[in-house]
Each structure stands twice: as structure tokens, then as C-alpha cells.
């Protein structure tokens, strides 16, 4: 018997590479969720990793770094923020 496949649909699931139930230290929303200013999680509300190993929602961290009081430091350890490449 020969089977001919005419078409198929693929479904994929992806997750951020972080501990599953962990939350952003700034907004306390799950990494898998999105920052308080966004409506849907995913590529439009990504995470950002620092060289110091700390992770935040990118929007949360940028909002912090844009304030004067941040002195461009990681909110966790106060080391100068350097985004991990």
C-alpha cells in the first residue's frame, strides 16, 4: 500500500531557557509571562540576560536602566549591567 501525504501542519512549543516557575525580579511576573506593559508573552516581550547571570524581562530592565537612580547597574547585585551576548 502506498500512502501519499498531501499536506501537514506542524505545531511547535518553545520556552525561555530559564527555570520553569521562576519570576522576573522586577515585576514578579513569571519569565514565561510578559512584563506588565505587554499583553502577550513571546518574542515581543523577550528576556534579557546579564553577564552577571541575572535575568529579567527586557522591558522591565530597560525601564530600570533608563532611570537615573539605576546608575546602569544590575538591580540584583549592583554591578554595572552588561548584556550577555
Amino acid at each position: 500500500m502506498k500512502v501519499t501525504i498531501n499536506s501537514w501542519n506542524t505545531v511547535a512549543l518553545w520556552k525561555w531557557n530559564v527555570q520553569e516557575d521562576d519570576v522576573c525580579g522586577i515585576c514578579r511576573v513569571a519569565y514565561e509571562g510578559c512584563c506588565p506593559d505587554c499583553k502577550v508573552p513571546g518574542d515581543d516581550c523577550p528576556l534579557i540576560w546579564g553577564q552577571c547571570s541575572h535575568v529579567f524581562h527586557m522591558h522591565c530592565l530597560l525601564k530600570w536602566l533608563n532611570t537615573e537612580s539605576s546608575r546602569q547597574q544590575c538591580p540584583m547585585d549592583r554591578r554595572p549591567w552588561v548584556t550577555a551576548s
Partner: peptide
Amino acid sequence: NICLNILREDWKPV
């Protein structure tokens, strides 16, 4: 009024 570092200059959002 309270003088506590983390209420002013040492506040951070975490």
C-alpha cells in the same frame, strides 16, 4: 520623614 538608604538612593526595583 525617615532616613533609610533603600527608601532613597539605594532603592532598586527587586
